[in-house]
Amino acid sequence: MTKASSVNWQTWQAEMPATLMFVVRDGKVLLIEKLRGIGKGKVNGPGGKIDPGETPLECVVRECQEELHITPKNPLKMGELWFAMSDIPDIHCHVFMATDYDGVETATEEAVPMWTAIDEVPYERMWEDDAHWLPQMLAGQMFNGRFEFTGEKIDWLEMHFGDAAAAEWKHV
């Protein structure tokens, strides 16, 4: 991927603000198999579209409650992702991590929970971008990334890691 971005990221606006949550403990991460919506059939963290008037933090907690019947404790924002998509709305995603939660992870109509060893995350069943940032996030690094997709394939990407990445986060 040596081509230049075809998106003007300075003026780009997402059509869909969204969130993701990754609960990590004892060397494992809580993932889900999506049963409906964008990403149906893929493995990811719980999350979803931010409702009008809702903050990213409020959204990620609500989505965990809806999708898995858990409430993450002390979620920490770890990164932001910007997706210019070819066949679904463009997405601006706020990514959180937590180490504990209240409740019992439960399968719902939206998702099936799956605890996975961090060194066995099934990247081949996830969105292609996840392999570019999730390992670093699971190791505790903050990040941001911009991706251009055609269908489910990345055409262009740009990633930043570390504390300086947080300075680039957009605020919604």
Rank of each mutant, 00 (worst) to 15 (best):
C64F: 02
D129P: 00
K73H: 12
E148A: 11
A84L: 03
N74D: 15
E148W: 06
D129M: 11
H92Q: 15
F96E: 01
K77Y: 02
E105C: 09
D119F: 08
I88Y: 11
D119S: 10
G140S: 01
P56H: 11
D129L: 04
W82I: 00
P75W: 03
C64Q: 02
E66G: 07
L138A: 03
I118T: 15
E110A: 08
P56E: 10
M114S: 03
M137F: 05
E109G: 10
V104S: 10
I70G: 06
Q136E: 14
M78C: 05
T150N: 13
D119A: 08
M137Q: 08
V61S: 04
D87F: 12
T108E: 03
V60R: 05
E109Y: 01
A139Y: 02
M114Y: 04
G145R: 05
A111D: 01
I50E: 07
D90R: 09
F149G: 11
T106H: 07
G53R: 14
P122W: 02
P113N: 03
W127R: 06
E128N: 01
G145A: 05
T116I: 15
P135I: 08
H94C: 09
G140Y: 01
E152S: 14
W127C: 04
P89C: 11
T99F: 01
E124I: 08
I91M: 14
L134Q: 09
E148F: 07
V121F: 04
W127F: 15
V60L: 08
R62K: 05
V60D: 04
T55N: 11
E58T: 06
D100W: 00
D87C: 11
P113E: 10
Y123C: 08
W115V: 00
T116L: 12
D90C: 09
R146F: 03
E80F: 00
F83H: 13
G151Q: 09
T99K: 12
C93H: 01
N144E: 13
I118S: 04
R62F: 04
L68S: 06
E54T: 04
E54H: 06
Q136Y: 13
Q136I: 00
P113C: 07
F83Q: 11
D51Q: 15
Q136A: 14
E105A: 15
R125I: 00
D100P: 01
M137G: 02
E105T: 10
A131R: 13
D119V: 08
P135R: 05
P52Q: 11
V104F: 13
T55S: 15
F143L: 00
W82T: 00
V121M: 10
P89I: 13
A84K: 14
C93P: 05
M142G: 00
M97Y: 05
